[in-house]
Nucleic acid binder design. Sequence first.
RNA 1: GGAGAGGUGGCUGAGCGGUUGAAAGCGCUGGUCUCGAAAACCAGUGUGCCUUCGGGUACCCAGGGUUCGAAUCCCUGCCUCUCCGCCA
Length: 421
Amino acid sequence: MLDMRLIRENPELVKQGLANKFDTSDLDKIVNLDEKRREIIRQVEKLKGQRNKASAEIAQKKKAGESADDAIAAMRQVGQDIAALDNELREIDQELQTALSWLPNLPHDDVPVGKDESSNRFVREWGEKPQKDFEVLPHWEIGESLGILDLEAAARLSGSGFYFLKGLGARLERALYNYMLDMHIADGFLECSVPVMVTSETLFGTGQLPKLAEDMYKTERDDLYLIPTAEVSLTNVYRGEIIDHTMLPMYMVAYTPCFRREAGAAGKDTRGMIRVHQFTKVELVKIVRPEKSPEELESLLIQAEKVLQGLKLPYRVMVLATGDLSFASAKTYDLELYAAGVDRYLEISSVSTFDDFQARRMNCRFRDAEGKVRFPHTLNGSGLALARLIPAILENYQNADGSVTIPDVLRPYMGGADKIG
RNA sequence: GGAGAGGUGGCUGAGCGGUUGAAAGCGCUGGUCUCGAAAACCAGUGUGCCUUCGGGUACCCAGGGUUCGAAUCCCUGCCUCUCCGCCA
């Protein structure tokens, strides 16, 4: 949620930000609703002042045993006027809140302006693409031939867009998330195990609702959504609360399944486990003091990179263009992992700062050392997505004989095994 | 799922439909005292909105309703607790 005060006082700045994000919301309408809202508040509060005064007098008279019938009769009309204005105010409030809830966050000044990913800017890269003197099979082929990935079984159970790992494949997933969790915990993140079904209020808080309703699974009977990312459960942990500044910065990490309908993605990445409806992910979330958030973003990015460096997987860092940013994000770095079998870069982590956009939607605040109540900044980053990591390992660590070498750092988690196959 | 009880400030906990934004206690902050600390005493201590910056107004789980007037009465929803049932 954007600050209404900012919109009111600096509409041109907000308009520019929205334009850079290629958002077409009618900001003038919002400014007008806001003005109308304040006008009604001025009127109704004046009447309420009268009413409160009269009520006190009525109470006094009754106490003194005098008749207050005249005063009561006189206030009857005022009471009706107040009710009418309150109704009008409620409607305008609702209209204004709805309009505000559809406004995306504003991008930072240093985010490249552009309508899609072709404007994303290269930041840095790490590692060498593996040189292979044989044809590297894509992960779905090598996975099937090693007997560790059974996409047919997954389709039998759930239809297209699911994966079924077996044996050392399932073990590899477990090794990966244990490796990642251990690393993040050692670096100060609080390990959390969280609900994967949440209410619409929770999804509103992080900005998935109202805009992304079509991209999520919903349990109609109970009105709960399956989370598309653990960001939702972690970030909302103090929704509606005022926390003490000594709790900041708060670093959290959780391993969860994630659920995405991938509506509108038909035809893209139809093979293998790169784009699926259910995948697992280790997610990192930070809640921090506003003045610290730029450096917290950089260190969060480094935290995600550390996983790939440990696994010796080559990647590049991109900063997303304004048009490629998600609804709630003010600035996002993508980590793109090179996978030799499909011969392309896969988005494996998205590291974002939301400024106070999510905190406002969640109404999550903190009391600073001076006792002042303020909105914190929230950030998150994948650390990392397993359904992209496993294909990259199966492809980049593939050997000519059809086996796959297990990265050094995972071997302790794999019962000492050094290769699959 | 069935039966019952209940949701009040950071916490505990009062609160006949009418000076109740809300007693009291605890906690916290500042002060006095002290070489310093503890104790004691004194003072302060919620959030949002509107504002002509004097103030005004709203909020006692949430949303409706009754009333001149609601923390207090009524309805709906959510949540918590106890007992039973079911169950990993």
